[in-house]
């Protein structure tokens, strides 16, 4: 499953709370779920275990991202708070549906900031949103072997016991 797991990518590090270069697919384990671009287990659960449907959902999210990023740039330039709020609200919901937690968080933070009228912070967060979008774009498609169920903590240890 591509970059899934816990390896660090080239860019690594955190940008404004969202890990710009973190792994793509996560197992949904509490300790690491928010760092991964997609919670694979959560997405597959929502898709009733259907990998094809999960990939379709991700491709729809990527299509929406491509449109929304351009629209957000335009709206920030035009200082259109109402327009920004509408697009960010939709993106937040789509990201949540696709189990793209970090993207949802950035969109939600930006929506809150826009509601407060802080365009300067909104511009800063838009850069973070682009980073998350890029991370999502780099995620490979889920394969048939991706069940989203990461290792159960402690399971190996219990098996080793006599």
């Amino acid at each position: 499953m591509g970059t899934g797991g816990r390896e660090k990518t080239e860019s690594g590090g955190c940008v404004g709370g969202a890990r710009a270069g973190g792994p793509c697919h996560g197992s949904g384990e509490p300790a690491s779920g928010m760092d991964e671009a997609i919670d694979t287990r959560g997405l597959l659960d929502r898709c009733m275990g259907d990998v094809g449907l999960a990939n379709l959902v991700l491709s729809k999210l990527r299509e929406q991202l491509a449109r929304d990023e351009a629209e957000l740039e335009r709206l920030v330039g035009a200082c259109d708070l109402a327009g920004l709020g509408r697009v960010l609200h939709g993106l937040k919901g789509a990201a949540a549906s696709a189990s793209a937690g970090p993207l949802r968080e950035v969109a939600a933070s930006m929506e809150r900031i826009v509601q407060g009228g802080d365009m300067h912070s909104a511009r800063t967060l838009l850069a973070h949103l682009h980073d998350e979008a890029e991370r999502l774009r780099r995620c490979p498609a889920l394969g048939e072997h991706d069940h989203g169920h990461g290792p159960i903590p402690g399971a190996d240890e219990s098996e080793r016991r006599p």
């Binding site: 898709c47 009733m48 259907d50 449907l53 379709l56 929406q64 919901g93 789509a94 549906s97």
Partner: peptide, 17 residues
């Protein structure tokens, strides 16, 4: 629903049901 991500999930879930 106007959102394709949500629509895809809703449609698949309810059609399969």
């Amino acid at each position: 629903d106007d959102n394709e991500v949500s629509l895809t999930l809703l449609h698949a879930t309810l059609s399969r049901a």
